[in-house]
Simulated assay, not measured.
Amino acid sequence: MNTTQISDSCVTCPYPNPQASLRLFCFPYAGGSSLIFRPWFNSLPKTVEVCPIELPGRGILMKLTPLSRLEPLIEDLAPVLLPHLDKPFAFFGHSMGALISFELARLLRREYNISPIHLFVSGRRAPQIPDRKPPIHALTEPEFIEELRRLNGTPKAVLESPELMQLLIPILRADFAAHETYIYTPASTLDCPITAFGGLQDEEVSGSELQAWQEQTNATFSRQMFSGDHFFLHSAQSLLLQSLSREIHRITSEISCQSP
């Protein structure tokens, strides 16, 4: 692998929608790729252009070394995203992706005076709450695989394939390291509304830890819970997309009312 910086190709948009009034940038969980958001394209309103983000080490960026710290990842992503922020935009991120989208929103405001119109965070405790569980990124391979099995986010067939795991483990270790070494720095609250999604059976994130995202915005906040564990965005996908669609309809209606 090489260590070339993230390029514009990290912003994927398989179905361009120039008439959309809103762009939704989607950030995957640890080990995930932009492909996890492919089922979303036909389920969300036509007023939104869905732009999944591909992180280094996977998909079309497979030759890039995965970044094991969050700060350099955010610093690389911001200037690449900037040309795509020429219309109202929102962020959606699940688990590690929620943390990426939050810190990216803070950096864009701080350095470019640009903010998302809405932040959707999913399956992740609020950033000011320290991790209550020991890190797993440096575990031995058998222990690491056992933790992946417990989290229930990696298909059993993949876990039992030595060839696939040989490709996936370096990416997962880097992603978990970026997530687990994150240190929250207090800053002024965001101006955009935040919606937090959670799984009712998620043992990684409690309802109160999701509710604490309210402290990160001086705008409106809402929390919505779905049946499922940490990966409810797959098991409860249709309900999640229905909820997201309602929010997007509301946001794009407001955008239309504000247009001259």
Rank of each mutant, 00 (worst) to 15 (best):
V80G: 01
G153L: 09
A138D: 15
E147V: 06
G97I: 08
H84T: 08
L148W: 10
F92H: 12
P83D: 10
P135Y: 08
A126K: 01
P155Q: 05
P79Q: 00
H179F: 10
R132C: 07
R124L: 09
I74D: 00
E143H: 10
G97D: 03
L119P: 00
P72M: 13
I74C: 03
H94I: 02
A138Y: 12
P186E: 14
R110C: 12
P135K: 13
F120E: 04
F92A: 15
P155L: 04
P79W: 04
L172Q: 02
V158D: 10
G153D: 12
L168W: 11
F92L: 14
L159Q: 01
E147P: 02
R150W: 06
V158H: 11
V80S: 01
Y184E: 03
L139R: 13
A105P: 05
S161Y: 04
P162Y: 05
L151K: 06
L172Y: 03
A105R: 13
A126H: 02
Y182K: 11
E163H: 07
N113V: 10
S95N: 05
L159I: 08
A178N: 05
L104P: 09
L104N: 09
M96K: 11
L81M: 14
N113K: 15
G97R: 12
D131F: 07
E147Y: 07
E160G: 11
G153Q: 14
L77Q: 03
T154K: 12
R109I: 03
L164P: 02
D175I: 06
V121H: 08
F176H: 09
I114N: 01
I114E: 00
K133Y: 14
P79Y: 01
N113S: 15
E141K: 08
S115N: 03
R109N: 11
R110N: 10
M165E: 02
S161I: 07
E75N: 07
T140H: 01
L104Y: 09
F144C: 12
R125H: 08
M96N: 07
V158R: 08
T181P: 00
P134C: 08
G97N: 06
G123N: 10
P127D: 09
K156C: 08
R173C: 09
T154I: 14
L119M: 07
R150A: 13
M165L: 15
P135H: 10
F176K: 08
L108N: 04
P130W: 07
P186I: 11
L104W: 06
R110W: 09
P116F: 11
A187K: 00
L164S: 12
F89N: 02
H137V: 00
P162A: 06
R109A: 02
T181Q: 13
I129T: 09
L167S: 11
I169A: 02
F176V: 01
Y112T: 05
P134K: 15
K87I: 04
R125K: 14
L151R: 13
A126Q: 03
I100S: 02
D175H: 05
